[in-house]
Design a protein around this nucleic acid. Structure first.
Lengths: 266, 266
DNA sequence: CATTAGCGTTGCGACATGAGCAACGCGGCC
DNA sequence: GGCCGCGTTGCTCATGTCGCAACGCTAATG
């Protein structure tokens, strides 16, 4: 039929494929009605409804009121928790991140590169233990964050130019918006072994990040410490940079970097 | 068959339902092979394979090696990011807090930990005319309030000792001022699942609080019911404790917390 | 070193299953 | 009141999906 929407690959199980599309539509739109979803899927209203109903029954989507729009549900969070729990990276780094958070009293994040954005995998809060917002699962731009710059620093310039989403949006007056400037900063990050972002993504937010490397030496993740700019003044910053770099190096070691390649293989 | 009440069991898209089961199996086991999954689903090996393949194509599951076991993938985290963006703590808890306020006719507060203090995020007043002042945005000590004790109960003792602001100031004659005593009370809070504070912060003010947990099971917030001590006598207190715990559990569920497998008492 | 056993993977035919249609109840909006 | 759009639900047909059996492969076993 008109299944040519996703040109190329043939779907293995049509219903499942469509159901996943429903989830992605909801992730993108925040919330949507059955009719909207059906339109975006290119299927009949009732088909979309049954898909949504199946997802809702298992808690992957929820509807706002008795008869209302749908949105992603808590079941997704169950799965997300299990996902990070099964990732070696998160498991190995968590105790070290916790220690870093305790030492600095600030929030520690672990991020990886994903589809031209930084994806936060884990977060440990500092003394202000429970932040109002949890970034895990969130994806943020690469050019405006310390984590993003570290992740980019592991790639050659040509690759950087390829994957960074353009134009480089200015989130604040401090945001780097020129590709040339970004590449210059990345060179510095490679040389220094860490990145800093002050008020670049959000005014009043400062972050420091350092690279996590796998046994090949490739940058696979980034560890950051972030907090209010007024609290991370230049006096503290040096110490935090050192701490962050040390933590990132320790995680890298755990992952087999510059160590015995005995990594727990499958 | 036309009965809508019992229709919950049916009206599902079989493939989607099975695919979700696959995800849950993987969430539970961490990783599993096609044969394992097929056994747990009670379907044929090839069926399980196709479901997994469909999920893999969209990034919801990944396989370890070229020919190996499967695990949950990064796609789940993308979805989770969108979920948390639309799942705001205050917004999710508000209707439940309102219901709690209506049932108890007392003031309901929602608080989180912030820099060694309890920060009030939301407040719903009971219908009682005697409205205490608005606490939203206020930050109050952890050791002298029911909310504070609940928030602390989610942390290990070492962490508690680290973040609580000392000395433990005595606001009233009932205030806990010894760290040892505080830790003992927190142990009780963890066991009971709720905290009570009578005249500890202010003479004549009684409050009951219960923990709100995220999908990891971590305590991220606290819900409290508070009012004049004379109105919250021991007769009413038990019922209010139950109500508060129930509300906190409901909010937790909305945030993706899976209720403990042990049977509930009520 | 040959053999076995178990894994993930694939072509195929039969049939259960999910798609589309049309109609219903309901709410908001001319 | 009448209209339009929403989410929801029987019904029927053919379509997409399942179970079977067989394959290539790896790794333990004799």
């Amino acid at each position: 039929m008109s299944n040519a929407a996703a040109a190329g690959a043939q779907s293995t199980v049509q219903s499942v494929d469509r159901a996943i599309t429903v989830l992605e539509v909801l992730a993108d739109a925040g919330e949507a009605g059955v009719t909207d979803i059906a339109r975006k899927l290119g299927v009949h209203k009732s088909t979309a409804f049954r898909l949504v109903a199946a997802l809702e029954k298992r808690g992957l989507v929820e509807q706002n009121s008795e008869r209302g729009k749908y949105r992603l549900g808590m079941g997704i969070l169950h799965l997300a928790g299990a996902t990070t729990a099964s990732l070696d990276l998160v498991q190995e780094s968590r105790p070290l991140c916790r220690a870093l958070a305790a030492q600095t009293n600030e929030t520690v994040n672990l991020a990886i590169l994903s589809d031209g954005l930084a994806l936060y995998l884990d977060q440990v809060s500092g003394s202000s233990a429970l932040q109002s917002h949890n970034w895990v699962g969130q994806r943020i731009p690469l050019h405006a964050t310390s984590n993003g710059k570290v992740l980019l620093s592991g790639l050659p310039d040509s690759e950087v130019a390829r994957i960074v989403r353009r134009p480089l949006r200015a989130y604040t007056a401090e945001t780097i918006t020129a590709m040339k400037g970004l590449l210059a900063v990345l060179a510095a990050v490679r040389a220094e072994g860490h990145a800093v972002a002050v008020d670049e993504f959000e005014v009043g937010l400062t972050a420091v990040a350092a690279p996590v490397r796998d046994f090949h030496g490739d940058v696979i993740a980034s560890v950051s410490v972030s907090g209010p700019t007024f609290r991370l003044d230049s006096d503290r910053l040096d110490g935090i940079v050192d701490n962050t770099k040390r933590t990132a190096a320790s995680i890298s070691t755990r992952l087999g970097w510059r160590a015995s390649p005995t990594a727990k293989s499958w």
